[in-house]
Nucleic acid binder design. Structure first.
Lengths: 182, 182
DNA sequence: TATTGTTATACTCTATAACTATA
DNA sequence: TATAGTTATAGAGTATAACAATA
């Protein structure tokens, strides 16, 4: 059964703009307090998590991926499919192992993905010129045509998602992120 | 069965530093070409993917989370457990729904998590002062003590992972990421 | 002996529908 | 009628071990 409904994800992404500190120690009961029972929270304070790079990178990535799934669905491509197809397209003859190393994937998880792309006529497997064990992967003309459209859609979607950033900020952000994982 | 071995993940993260362009169109067969068969790839070119914010944000996030899993394992906390515990700690009396909205989680996926934290004696559930349907979540003294250590470990780990960034760059990166998902 | 691609499989993560108790 | 919390469950994602063919 395909995943279709996206429901309240957008609403969940609405975060508090100006949270008020609510530390346990900071709550000093005054003499006028009527209900000494359990306290309630008005605005959730997530400032500590927002100081963590991992949290922010993950939230930003999921925010972009959410839109990516919608926009690339017409092409039948999920993020990993897209990354694999794009890398094959830009590296004709690349092997599965090379894809795994470049995209940080595990070989067993790539098998079904490659088979699916081949079954759809988007890629072809040719014998590797130097290594009899390996198989070279090549995008078909159909696959190339699909990826021209898909990459354009992805670029547009990214422009929308980074609309609050200036071109300079966008370039800076890409560079800083790569300083973390490369 | 717990996940223990991490194997070649680190090796997979080693990405090409100076990829050579290998576009299909750019390959112009000269008259001296001996093997007109399938081509092979030396260095995988991932420059297009590296121009996408979603790709870079995801790779950076996974890189940090990988270390996070190792360092926080002694506390029995995965990223989501950590986020939930931290948010409860800084927001005594917060409800499940508020946690879901603030952290972009789905209610059904939070139930088992909360029950687990309660069973470990890290949090307590108290009746909500204003809403009979809701339950206020509170960190126990044991949970508070754990999170003091856990948050310190997380902060240290993040400092290591962002060691290539200056403090100013780190602050800039956090700010730019929040411009995407907030 | 080491590596490529593969199979089988298990665990985790994420998502949906539907129910109850209360507002 | 709408919302908070819950249950059950399905699907996707991620991980390990082990194997055959080739280097």
């Amino acid at each position: 059964m395909p995943r279709t409904i996206r429901s309240d994800k957008a609403a969940n992404l609405v975060a508090p703009k100006t949270p008020r500190p609510a530390s346990a120690k900071a709550v000093r009961p005054s003499a006028k307090v009527v209900k000494p029972a359990a306290a309630s929270v008005e605005q959730v304070d997530t400032r500590y998590l927002q100081s963590l790079m991992g949290y922010n990178a993950r939230r930003a990535a999921l925010s972009i991926i959410e839109l990516f799934l919608d926009r690339l669905a017409p092409y039948g491509l999920k993020p990993v499919d897209f990354s694999v197809m794009s890398t094959i397209g830009h590296n004709p003859g690349v092997t599965s192992r090379q894809l795994c190393a470049a995209l940080n994937l595990l070989p067993p998880n790539l098998v079904g993905l490659i088979q699916s792309l081949e079954a759809r006529g988007l890629i072809e497997r040719k014998p590797h010129p130097h290594d009899g064990r390996a198989v070279g992967l090549h995008a078909t003309s159909k696959g190339q045509a699909l990826m021209v459209q898909a990459e354009q859609t992805a670029t547009e979607l990214e422009t929308e998602k980074t609309a609050k950033l200036t071109p300079a900020e966008r370039k800076t952000l890409l560079s800083l992120l790569q300083k973390i994982y490369l």
